[in-house]
């Protein structure tokens, strides 16, 4: 295990930001800390990096107890949401910073900086000031800067949060490929479930200072531990006394199946290749998603009477009573 977080608790005044959190992250993996804003993801990441200290609990990095180590000595690379560039230094100087601090020989620094700029595709910008780079370029520079000192672990706090959707998606794929190349243990924070599902080997879902579930993207999606995880990873609707994904509901236009719930389609909305139907039932509105072909076969229009059942093999969790 590369990073062991054991029973970490952190309070800001009376507010409990992390409540007895334990996580272990295996070496060489790309892990996402996923959860809603304010859930404590950044706090956990900063405690791992030594930028904040835990009230209780321990941090172990690559077998050494790092709980009391200052940030300078932990050997972690940290990438911030807003890049945290050194504005008065050129791109090359930014990347060289950590190496110069360590008093590495000049030619080694030069070679390493060139290598890294190559890696993040910024070679031709080495003499520019950060202000002359776009947001995505700045973040790649920040990444090169963090990688320069060969950290044991790389921590990224919403690294793409400040970028626009397109660049964000590009960089996300690029991070995945970079990780496959460099293999450094990486933890990144995100509140975007799509980002986590696409990029991470493993996801830690954090909410209100607690770990809700740890698992691979598939595990999380298919076997959510609870209602919260299920809701956070994708759309959910409630059918009778279970909650399930809208595309896991079977629709029939004739009664027949045992346990089917009867309702009336009140809204039929075509979104691209799928059709979203709102069905009014005695237990409230249910959202159903079908393919367009399927909807056409059923001749589904507003006002049609329908009978709904959960598809066999659907992921369901019991609905919580009176939320």
């Amino acid at each position: 295990m590369s990073i062991e977080v054991t029973n970490v608790t952190k309070k800001f005044g009376d507010f409990v930001a992390l409540d007895d959190v334990s996580v272990s992250l295996p070496t060489g993996q790309l892990t996402a800390l996923l959860g809603p804003s304010g859930g404590g993801k950044s706090t956990l990441l900063r405690i791992i990096a030594g930028l904040d200290s835990a009230d209780s609990g321990t941090i172990n990095i690559e077998g050494t107890d790092a709980t009391r180590l200052p940030a300078q000595k932990r050997g972690v690379g940290f990438v911030f949401q807003h890049y945290a560039v050194f504005k008065h230094m050129t791109v090359a100087k930014n990347v060289a910073f950590g190496l110069e601090i360590r008093k590495r020989p000049k030619d080694e620094v030069k070679r390493r900086v060139e290598e890294l700029l190559e890696l993040v595709h910024l070679s031709q910008f080495s003499h520019r000031l950060p202000s002359q780079l776009s947001g995505g370029q700045r973040q790649r520079m920040a990444l090169a800067r963090a990688l320069a000192v060969e950290p044991k672990v790389l921590l990224l706090d919403e690294p793409f949060g400040a970028l626009d959707a397109k660049v964000r998606k590009e960089l996300r794929d690029w991070l995945r490929r970079l990780h496959d190349e460099v293999h450094v243990t990486t933890v990144f924070v995100t509140h975007d479930q799509e980002e986590a599902l696409e990029v991470a080997d493993e996801i830690v879902v954090i909410n209100e200072g607690r770990v809700e579930q740890i698992g691979t993207p598939d595990q999380l999606y298919d076997e959510p531990a609870n209602d919260f995880v299920m809701g956070f990873l994708g759309e959910v609707t409630q059918l009778g006394d279970v909650r399930l994904r809208p595309h896991d509901i079977e629709v029939a236009v004739t009664p027949g199946l045992a346990g089917a719930i009867e309702g009336t389609a009140t809204r039929v909305l075509r979104v691209g290749f799928e059709v979203r139907v709102t069905v009014a039932t005695s237990g409230g509105d249910v959202t159903v998603v079908l393919t367009r072909t399927h909807a056409r076969q059923l001749e589904l229009v507003e006002g049609t009477k329908v009978w709904l059942t959960a598809a066999s093999g659907a992921t369901t969790v019991p609905a919580m009573v009176a939320v």
Binding site: A49, G50, L51, P70, A71, Q72, K73, R74, V76, G77, F78, F80, H82, A84, V85, F86, K87, H88, F97, G98, I101, R102, A142, R145, A146, A148, V149
Partner: peptide, 24 residues
């Protein structure tokens, strides 16, 4: 976070003051 970035890269207080804060 700029100072924190420097710290996580291994810079001591004095170095951060000299190389990051004062130049800014």
């Amino acid at each position: 976070d700029v100072e924190e970035a420097a710290a996580s890269l291994g810079a001591s207080r004095g170095t951060i003051l000299r190389r990051i804060i004062l130049p800014s």
